[in-house]
Simulated assay, not measured.
Amino acid sequence: MSSALSAPLVAPVRARSTPQIEEYGGVSIASRALSISLRHTVRPLLDAWALTPSLPWPTGLVDRAAFPLLPAPGTEYHRMTLDTCPAEFVRAPGAGGRTAILYLHGGAFLCCGLTTHRQLVSRISAAAGAPALSVAYRMLPRHPIRHAVDDGLSGLRWLIAHGYPIDRIVIAGDSAGGFLAFSVAHEALRLGLGRAAGTVAISPLTDLDHRPKLDHPNARKCALFPRRAVPALSTLIERAEQIDDRYAPVPSPVDLDLTGMPPALLQTGSEEMTFVDAETMAYRLASAGVPTQLQVWEKQAHVFQAAASLVPEGSRAIVEIGMFVRSLDTV
């Protein structure tokens, strides 16, 4: 294929029930190094976790260990407390105007937080020219996914109360945070809060049924996730759903009635485990009449955008996110 950061390999496909699809070819040396590193470090750890996922793993240490990950130069960030969880308001240089971003971090609903994602959120804020509220939602195994959705809604209400109307708020997230981005946008519609300006989903998990992922060829290609980690996560989610029986389990975004959802941008690596989730979600959004862009990046690792300071494809992908958010501000 062509060199890294090439133009899309195919012309966008435009049809009422089909997403706009762009494929970005080329794999830089830095990207290859990242995939090799993940395959020989993080992936074995996840494989070990999958053998005994119910043990009290110190997942909270992941966010504390991420302090060396600095935000974009000149970024201002302020900690706060929402109704039930912490959050952080992030403003990169030049981020102003009418639009704001609600950001929900990834980490399989188990780990990561404000510190691990501060660099990524600050880069997205800079690219989009918009401040971002990053939410440290409640996580597994002590909380069901419903609590995380509620925390996302709390962040959405905070932005609305501080001068950002919902039609100027873009809801974004990576991996499990992509799941939450769609869920929060859908809940906002259901509760009558209104329609968000857009959604951005980076390497999103959108289907809690692990079988489509394991049946896909990427189950053996993914540089980050081992096969056994997928059903292990499903088991943890099922157990957590029993903690609070006041609510029904949160449905997977791919199973929702997506009519009326805001315009969406989805980014995914071509060989990652959650590729099938992103692809399925894009087609179901488009089938519901939602303007949808699906960007497929050749052989990029799961949430490669988080390595934008090292991987040129990650930097380019964040530029694309910024362009998408800015385009919504002109509507």
Score class of each variant (00 low, 15 high):
residue 196 A to I: 07
residue 272 E to V: 00
residue 179 F to T: 03
residue 263 P to F: 01
residue 156 L to N: 10
residue 114 L to C: 08
residue 32 R to N: 07
residue 254 V to W: 09
residue 289 G to Q: 11
residue 162 H to K: 12
residue 81 T to L: 14
residue 257 D to R: 14
residue 244 D to V: 03
residue 30 A to K: 07
residue 123 R to V: 04
residue 255 D to M: 03
residue 289 G to W: 07
residue 14 R to L: 15
residue 109 F to W: 11
residue 259 T to P: 10
residue 195 R to W: 11
residue 317 A to R: 07
residue 13 V to Q: 14
residue 251 P to H: 11
residue 42 V to C: 00
residue 275 F to W: 14
residue 2 S to C: 06
residue 323 M to E: 15
residue 141 P to Y: 05
residue 312 P to D: 07
residue 194 G to H: 13
residue 227 R to D: 01
residue 322 G to C: 06
residue 31 S to L: 12
residue 259 T to N: 12
residue 124 I to S: 02
residue 143 H to A: 13
residue 331 V to Q: 09
residue 181 A to P: 05
residue 131 P to F: 08
residue 69 L to E: 01
residue 22 E to N: 12
residue 152 G to E: 08
residue 320 E to C: 09
residue 176 A to T: 03
residue 330 T to R: 15
residue 209 D to I: 00
residue 156 L to V: 09
residue 124 I to W: 02
residue 166 I to P: 01
residue 75 T to Q: 13
residue 162 H to N: 15
residue 154 S to P: 12
residue 251 P to K: 12
residue 51 L to N: 10
residue 242 Q to M: 09
residue 118 R to M: 04
residue 224 L to A: 04
residue 17 S to Y: 08
residue 92 A to N: 10
residue 203 S to K: 04
residue 121 V to R: 00
residue 233 L to K: 01
residue 17 S to W: 10
residue 125 S to T: 05
residue 158 W to T: 09
residue 168 R to G: 02
residue 307 A to E: 03
residue 275 F to E: 09
residue 13 V to F: 12
residue 59 T to A: 09
residue 5 L to H: 04
residue 230 V to A: 13
residue 141 P to L: 06
residue 63 D to N: 15
residue 242 Q to K: 14
residue 275 F to Q: 08
residue 117 H to M: 07
residue 119 Q to N: 10
residue 315 S to V: 00
residue 213 K to C: 15
residue 123 R to K: 09
residue 169 I to A: 03
residue 146 R to S: 09
residue 217 P to S: 06
residue 326 R to W: 05
residue 53 P to V: 10
